[in-house]
Each structure stands twice: as C-alpha cells, then as structure tokens.
Nucleic acid binder design. Sequence first.
DNA 1: GAGCACTGC
Length: 714
Amino acid sequence: MAAFLRPGERQPGAFGVSFDADRGNAGTAVLHNPNARLALSDQRRRLPVFEHRREILYLVEHHAVTVIVGETGSGKTTQIPQYLLEAGWCASGRMVACTQPRRVAAMTVAARVAEETGGVLGREIGYAIRFEDVSTPDVTKIRFCTDGVLLREMLDDPLLTRYSVVMVDEAHERSMATDTLLGLLKKVLRRRPDLRLVISSATLEADKVAAFFDTATLRGKAAAAAGGLRRTPALLSVAGRCHDVQVHYLEQPAPDYVRAAVTAAADLHATGLPGDILMFLTGQDECEAAVRMLEEEARRGRRERASGLRLMPAALYAGLPAAAQLAALEPPPRGYRKVVAATNIAETSVTIPGVCYVIDCCYAKVKVYDPLSGMEALLAAPISRASAAQRAGRAGRTRPGHCLRLCTEAAFAELPAASVPEMQRAELAGTVLQLKALGVDNIMAFDWLAPPPAEAMVRALELLHALGALGDDARLTRPLGLRISELPLDPRLGAALLAAGRLGCAGDMATVAAMLCVQSVWFAGGGERRALEAAKEKFAVAEGDLVTYLNVWKAWEASGRSGRWAHRHLVNHRTMLRAADIRRQLLQHLWRLGIKPEEVEGSDDAPVRRALAAGLFHNAAQLAETTYESRDAAFAGTHVYRLLRSTGPGLPPRLRIGAASVLARTRPQWLVFYQVQLGAGGFHDMTDVAAIEPGWLPELAPHMFHYVRDAARG
DNA sequence: GAGCACTGC
C-alpha cells in the first residue's frame, strides 16, 4: 500500500504536496455567491460569456454552425439563447431550441432563464421533457428540451421548421441521442440554409464536431444553396469560472482501489483541513463497502480524538432511493466532514456542493455490446483522460481543490484521451428504426458522427426485420414499422405492445412495458436482502418476473396507489409513479391507434406472455438438457440455458437465470427474457424473465420459424 | 447459492 499523508506530517506524502496552503481558507468554505446582491442584469454581465456576446452573434449570423468551447461556469447555456432572442432570432414566430442530455438540466436552466428575463416559466421561456411540455405555442421564444424530445419532434416536423436556431448543449458527452441529432441536423442544414446550429462542447470533442460539420468543400447545388453563408464552422472558446484543482498520483499502483480510496480519505481527514471528499468508484457494492470501511474509521477516530471534524460517510448511486440520494447531497452538520462514495452519477448528473477533494479510482462500469452474439455486458474499464478531468473538476466548484488519482502518473498517461461514443458500443435497433422513420433508408451510408460497427448495424436491421418493422427491402413497413417507431419504447417492447392489441391484452402489456422501462421496482439499499426476498415472494408467480410485475402493479392500483402500501411491501413508490406516467403515455398512443387497452380477466396471463414472446422471441431460450460441468465447484450444476436463435461463429453464450429473478429456483423449460448481464463465471445472467410455450414461437415470429421448429422438435 | 454504470422518448 502506498504511503499517504499522516496526521501531523509536515513533509509531502504520496500526494507530492501538503495541504497546508489551504489552511488559510478554513473559514471561507461556506457556499457564497459574491454577486448575490447585484441585480440580475448586472450578474449576467459578469459572466465570462458576456465578453463574447457580439462575437457570438456575429458568428451565428455568418456561419451555419458555431461550435462553442465553454468551460463550466462560463454561462453559455443560460446566456447564449438569450443573446439570440435579443438579436431577433425569434422574430416571425420562430423559436430558439436549446437541447440538454438530461431532464433536470432542461427544467432548471429554463427556470433560471425565465427568472433572468423577468417572465413566467412556460410563456416566453419554456421547456419540454417527456410527460411535461411547459411552453405555449406562438408565445414561447426559447424552448429548452432534452435531445430525445427534439428527436421525437422531428418525426412530425423533420426540418424543425419551428426553430431558427438549435443549440445542442453538452455535445461532448456523445450520447446516442446527441450523436443522432447532430447527424440529422447536418442533413437538415442542406435543406434549410436559414437554420443555424450552435454546438457547445469540451475542447477535445469540439474539433471532431467542427470537422464533421465542415462542408466548405461541397460543390454544386449544396454550395450554391448556402448563399453567402460560411460552410466552415466557427470555433470559439469561452473561459470558465472554476477554481484550480491540483492533481496528484500514486507513487506505486494500488492493488485494491476501494481500500486505497478509504485510506486516502482517512489520511486526508486526519489532516483536519476543511472540505468534503468525493470518491469515484464503479458500482453499488463498492460504494457500500467503502461506506462500511469509513464508518469503521469513524468509530476508531472518535476513540482516538475527541476534537476536530468527525467523518460522515454516505453512498451515492442511481439505484438508491431518492431520500438517501438527497441525504448524500446535503451539507454535513457542523463539525462533520462528509465523504461521499459515488458512482459515475456524480460525474455529470449530480453536483455535490462543498466538495474540495476528489479521490478517483479511474475506473467506471461501461456497457459493451457484442454484435456477434447480440449480448450486452457491463464491465469495469479504465476511464478516459477527458472523463478523469471532468471528475477532477468536481473538486473545484467552490474553491481551489485537490484530486488524487489512484494510479501512477505513467499509467494515467496511457489512458485513452476520450471515451468511445455510446453509438459505437451499444445496441442500435431503436436508433436505426428512428432513422428509418425519418426517411434515412441507407443506414450504412448515413453520415454518422461516429459510425457504429457495421456488424452492429446489420444486427439491428435483422432484429427490426424479424419484428416486422422493416420489410424485405429493409424499408419501414406501414403501418407496423411506423407504429413501432412512434412508440416511446424499445422496438421489441413496441412490437410486444402492438401484438398485445391483437391478442386482446394491450392494457396489461402497457403495464408490463412501463414496468420494464423503469429501474427496479423493489426498494434498494439498506441491504436487507432476506426481507426483500420475502416481499417478492408475495407477488412471485411461476410464469416469471414479467407477470410478477403485473401483479405488483395491480396490487398497487388496488391500494389506491398508496405510498404506505408500497413502503410496506418494499416497493419503490416513486418508481411506481414513474411507471404510471409511462403507462398513461402508452395508453394515449394506443388510443390514437384505435387499440383498446384491454386487460385479461382473472388469472389467465397466457395472452400477455404470448404478446411478450411476440416482441422478445429474439431472446427465447431453452433449458439445456445437461447441467453445466465445471472444475470450479461454485459453477458446477448450474442450470444453463441456450438461445434458440443462432449467434453466429464462436461459442454460444451460456445463459442462466439471474439471482434477482423470481424464477431463479423454478427454471422453466422455455422462456423469453428482456435483459442479460455478464455475470460471474462467464455466464450471462438473464433478468426479467417470462416462461413461454415453445409452440407459440412459430406463429408469433414466422421470420425465425426455422430455428424454433428445429428446437421444438428436440 | 446467487446481484444490479448512467441517461432518454
């Protein structure tokens, strides 16, 4: 284990510096906005972006695309849309759109801008996120929205004619939605020379984005259509307003980064210097382990020293109930130092005030997709340097801070500069279907910001074809393919919902689909595993998790959607409310399509399982006849399932029912599953499982009939 | 006996 700064040490520890320089700031660690008493208009002028106001307006006027590199605190998100409004870009009924990757961001930024303009949110300044359109037609001038909402809007208005400028914020995060939107916007620009794009991004990605939009070499019609407009994107840098963060490395690699992070936090704590600590780990189990170890440290610390700060550890991850998440964000009571052990959620989604120290294990769990087998897996992998910089920045929001990376400087230099865009490591069916619905027929030739692997595109086309969404010519089928593309669901669930309409159980299927869209309905955190098992048992049925969800929903409905009922049954009430929102939205779509939301009477859930099989037949599996033989006793006797479809060359994935499934003990002969995770021993753990009858498959999925017929005979 | 990065329509 590397040596860290010890209590009372004067000389530099493994960090390479001492923290004494910060002692003078001991009294100023309070959150304080020095401009709080200034009028809002004066505050606006003090933002770094204000100095570039005229330049930005000039560039937007003369360039089709302007790429802004704005660091945190520059004010770009709130100010640039206002500058555009003031300069007349919202005349003649058009709007400025500003997209955000996350719902909360769209809402909070809109609220802030409405306040600055002295207006009521939803009038001149509005926002639109799923379930919530707080804007007024013909009145709203600036509309903040999630990038997903703007993509959906393009289905009705492919040229985005309501907008004069689209600002795509946080483009460097390179989410699927952002990448898709940028690719489509490039096409739109060719047809709409009057449209302007403003893209905000961090340095590294800004160059890539600018190069992508550089059409200066275009000849002929496209160039002529551009008129006097410059086709080379303008690139502008705006300074941020955040504090310096000093970065430190280990002298020796740490074999166990959870232990190393806890030791580092304890050593930092022992210096007595003020400021909260944020540590980045990869998952729930690591965060909870770190909290337990820190609590142990705290107990020892209390015995050793009666004076000084006390440790207050907290875990923070997305699966945590809302109340526990909020508790981790609150400032600690006087005399306490908060140490938050967080996953990637703290990198972009959540900001923890008061953090002065970041301890970064330099790993994160990332989704990887194997287009050959069509299996997704979650693996802990080293992060990129860009990601590490973002994490380090979390220490400098209120005052100068420090970041300790739990690797050597040499190892850090070996990390990739940027992360692989999600588009290149995810399953593509939904995105491909959306593009098809927008008239992009040749997916392989689409101008991707980052082209996905060809194999992944082929898999997506195959799946969509098997679902009946694409015809033999790979074009969108009507009405089926168009309908699936319009549903705000994974195409497989969309297909299942429409099949349910034919089978007379669309209402039930909408429930199951909504429950599959939300995170686990079971109450997480606290670690009372046995109690949770008992709670699940009450709803569990031999037909699997998907029917169990239906039972939970019906019981929750019968209780009058009671929060107390949910609490008593260890069901997450907030998750249920969100599922209710999604279900309501799905029912609206069904109503528009003229499909009755019928629910099956009594306990006959076969129609729902048939509908599920109609969407999930791609993930149909059969219990293998022999149990798995392994030299490793832990895996011997595991009940292995095999996919019914072929997975190409290489060993077929060994599937088993995940521990979270209610079928973990029952093991039906035939099943379909919604998700799969790479687990211990190289097994793929199936979650969200439904038992099926093999005879259903040929009639529900005639495209794959030959696999099924062969398997059913066996 | 077993276990879950993060978003979004």
